[in-house]
Design a protein around this nucleic acid. Sequence first.
DNA 1: TCCGTGACCGATCAATGATAAGTGATCAGT
DNA 2: ACTGATCACTTATCATTGATCGGTCACGGA
Lengths: 211, 211
Amino acid sequence: MNTPSSRSPRKAKGQGAERREEILAAALKLFTEFGLYAVSTRQIAQAVGISQPTLYAYFPTKDDIGRELHGRAFALLAQSLAAGDRGPIVSPECLMEMLRIYVDFGLKHPEMYRIAFMSESVQIKAWWKPQDLTLSPETQSTYGVLHRELADLQARGLTVDVDPSALTQSVWASMHGLVSLLIAKPGFPWVERELLISSHLKLMARGVWRG
Amino acid sequence: MNTPSSRSPRKAKGQGAERREEILAAALKLFTEFGLYAVSTRQIAQAVGISQPTLYAYFPTKDDIGRELHGRAFALLAQSLAAGDRGPIVSPECLMEMLRIYVDFGLKHPEMYRIAFMSESVQIKAWWKPQDLTLSPETQSTYGVLHRELADLQARGLTVDVDPSALTQSVWASMHGLVSLLIAKPGFPWVERELLISSHLKLMARGVWRG
DNA sequence: TCCGTGACCGATCAATGATAAGTGATCAGT
DNA sequence: ACTGATCACTTATCATTGATCGGTCACGGA
């Protein structure tokens, strides 16, 4: 009413798909810097250059923005792991190399990793309820890559003799622990990062490898 | 005004210290079930049986309630670890026993562990800023127990030859990874829990122990 | 009896996530 | 050229949130 010309209808833009991407990009940036719950929908809208209700034309809920980012982070991680797959693991070094991809992903995209594995609300609403015990496709592929390699490794008799699923979950948990703590507690007096990572990988390889 | 007698001044209660405890207990329960950000101050107040503004007579901020619980969780974990200290570690089984205390604590008090290591907002406000690089006394003691044991173990030449601090952080990260994932993702198709834990501990012990 | 202190409450604030209703540009069909 | 539908977007508004304000009530010492 008062300033009808203040509108900026984003002329000549394609469909709504690009707007969606703009929103996701802005949200990811803000979530990363300030945390999911410290960012308001109005801040996101302002960063994109639109009004706050417009967000709801693209996402039914604020949490859905987080969830979408969550899914994408998973997919990107799985993709990184798959891309780094060098075929069958034949040596401890080979195993360490694969695990390092996981670490590198987390440290290179802390915002992604945070949203994928360390975000609170999204997790509680998505996972806390014991109703759906199925894995999302993204989780499947991420976890699947690791499981396949380790199961194969064990089938060839190169690992310690424990259940391959248990081994996979154990290794995954260890890697996740390292990455999440490094991301979550930058103020902690960690030893030099490369030293920490390499010794962690060595620890894993020693634990997994037979003999 | 309308129902002045509806007040319940909690007669004959001691000082305010007990009220504080009631608030903390109620908040812990609610935070655990619904998550830090899904719980409102009014819900906490109602659970305690007081009005919402009264909370602010005991805590300056909602986040301060979370922070207090956070500190207590840390303290309790450190206490558990210290209580389980059986003196010098002389065998891999001995090491595994100590690490199991950590796991047991997390799984026995998931609400505590969640608040101590997996809470988001409190962490961001408390740790994200790189200003204070000092460790809180609680963290000191928790981390310290593990570090002391492993450093001692290495001094006696029983571990692999890596920096003892790196080893400690690596082991801690691995344990944290397992506990936090078990807590955060109950819907994940984990292998039988005891199997997972014991194989995880074996993995650790194998990785740490020399030879 | 009076007064002060401390625990507590209702009313209210600004900000939040979300909804409703409306505005104006664009485009197909006549 | 006119019309009507549609789309992207807006302002106005809602209930709820964390937090503040001033006041009220009971009780204990003078």
